[in-house]
Amino acid sequence: MQYVWFIWSLIILALWGVVYLMKKDSRREMLKMSWITMPFGLTEPLFVPEYWHPPSLFDLAIKTGFDIESLIFSFAIGGIGTVLYNLIFKRRYVEIPHTERKHARHRLHLYILFVPAVVFLVLALFTPLNHIYCGIAAMFLGGMATLYCRPDLKTKIWISGFLFTALYFVYFGSILPFYPDYVELFWNLENLSDILVTGIPIEELLFAFTFGMYWSGLYEHLYWRKLMRPITMS
C-alpha cells in the first residue's frame, strides 16, 4: 500500500487535466486557483498523525508530517472545485463593474476573505477539536460569509458543495475495492466520529462538501467576477 496515496493523487491530477482541456474558457482561472490551493498541502502536519497517517513517497508523512501527495492533491482539487459548477451548467466569468463593487455588502469584502483562517485558528488554538473539524467549520463559515457578501453566488455555492461531494465520493470510493482495509489502517478512527458511509469516513465527505461550497465561490470573490450564461448565436 506504499504508493496508494501517490497513485490516487495522480488520478485526481489526471481528472484536473481532463477538466482543464474541456473548460477552455476558464483555464486561466483554473490555473490561478490551483496554484493558490497548492500551498495548503503544506498544512498536512496539522493532520498527521492525529487525523490520519498515510503511507507516502519516501515515508515523508510519517517522518516529517509533510508529503508530496498532499501538494498534488491540493493543486488538483483547487482547480476542479473552482470550475466544476461552471463546466456542468455552462457558465462563464464576467467582471463586476466598479460601480457595483461599491454596494454596502462589499464593504467587508477583505475581512470576509479571512473568515476561514480566523475560524480555523480560534478552534485549533482554543478547543480540543481534531483539526479536520476545525477545517470543516472554517470552510463552512467561510462559505456563509461569502454568501453574505456575494448573494449572487448562492446557487453555485450550495450546488457546488453537493457536486464536489459526489465527485469525491466516487474518487475516494474507487480506492476501497482495491484496498478495503485502507481506511481502517490509516485513519485514526478512534479520534473521529467512527461514522463510515459505504466505508468512507464521514469527515472526508464533510470536508468535500464544505470545500466545494467555499472554494467554488472564492475565485469570484477574490477577483470581482460573476457568472453569466455564454452568449449563443441564434
Results as ranks from 00 to 15, higher is better:
residue 5 W to S: 09
residue 8 W to V: 10
residue 9 S to G: 13
residue 11 I to N: 04
residue 12 I to Q: 07
residue 13 L to E: 06
residue 18 V to D: 07
residue 19 V to Y: 01
residue 22 M to S: 15
residue 25 D to M: 10
residue 29 E to W: 11
residue 29 E to S: 14
residue 29 E to R: 12
residue 30 M to W: 02
residue 32 K to L: 14
residue 33 M to V: 05
residue 34 S to N: 10
residue 36 I to W: 01
residue 37 T to I: 03
residue 38 M to F: 02
residue 39 P to H: 06
residue 40 F to Q: 07
residue 43 T to I: 14
residue 43 T to A: 14
residue 45 P to L: 00
residue 50 E to T: 14
residue 53 H to L: 15
residue 55 P to R: 00
residue 61 A to H: 00
residue 64 T to L: 09
residue 64 T to W: 09
residue 69 E to S: 08
residue 69 E to W: 01
residue 72 I to L: 06
residue 74 S to R: 06
residue 75 F to S: 00
residue 77 I to W: 06
residue 77 I to K: 04
residue 78 G to Y: 01
residue 79 G to P: 08
residue 79 G to D: 00
residue 81 G to H: 01
residue 83 V to S: 02
residue 84 L to S: 00
residue 84 L to Q: 02
residue 85 Y to D: 00
residue 89 F to H: 03
residue 91 R to M: 07
residue 91 R to F: 02
residue 93 Y to M: 09
residue 93 Y to T: 11
residue 95 E to D: 14
residue 97 P to D: 05
residue 99 T to W: 15
residue 100 E to D: 14
residue 100 E to R: 15
residue 114 F to V: 15
residue 115 V to L: 03
residue 122 V to E: 12
residue 122 V to H: 13
residue 125 L to K: 14
residue 126 F to H: 15
residue 126 F to P: 13
residue 129 L to F: 14
residue 129 L to T: 13
residue 131 H to C: 13
residue 132 I to Q: 03
residue 132 I to R: 08
residue 133 Y to P: 12
residue 134 C to G: 13
residue 136 I to A: 00
residue 137 A to S: 12
residue 142 G to A: 06
residue 143 G to C: 04
residue 144 M to H: 10
residue 145 A to M: 02
residue 145 A to D: 06
residue 148 Y to C: 10
residue 148 Y to H: 10
residue 152 D to L: 01
residue 153 L to G: 05
residue 159 I to Y: 00
residue 161 G to A: 10
residue 164 F to W: 07
residue 166 A to E: 01
residue 166 A to F: 00
residue 167 L to M: 08
residue 167 L to E: 03
residue 168 Y to C: 08
residue 171 Y to T: 06
residue 172 F to P: 06
residue 173 G to F: 05
residue 174 S to W: 03
residue 175 I to N: 07
residue 176 L to V: 12
residue 178 F to W: 15
residue 179 Y to V: 12
residue 181 D to M: 14
residue 181 D to F: 13
residue 182 Y to H: 09
residue 184 E to P: 12
residue 187 W to T: 06
residue 188 N to A: 11
residue 188 N to F: 10
residue 191 N to F: 05
residue 193 S to M: 07
residue 195 I to H: 10
residue 195 I to R: 11
residue 197 V to P: 08
residue 197 V to N: 10
residue 199 G to A: 11
residue 200 I to R: 00
residue 201 P to V: 04
residue 204 E to A: 01
residue 204 E to K: 06
residue 206 L to C: 11
residue 206 L to K: 08
residue 206 L to E: 00
residue 207 F to D: 03
residue 207 F to C: 09
residue 211 F to V: 09
residue 212 G to W: 00
residue 214 Y to A: 02
residue 218 L to A: 02
residue 218 L to K: 07
residue 219 Y to C: 05
residue 219 Y to G: 04
residue 221 H to V: 07
residue 221 H to A: 04
residue 221 H to K: 03
residue 223 Y to F: 12
residue 223 Y to K: 12
residue 224 W to L: 08
residue 224 W to P: 06
residue 224 W to K: 07
residue 226 K to A: 08
residue 227 L to P: 05
residue 229 R to D: 14
residue 231 I to S: 15
residue 231 I to L: 15
residue 233 M to S: 14
residue 234 S to T: 13
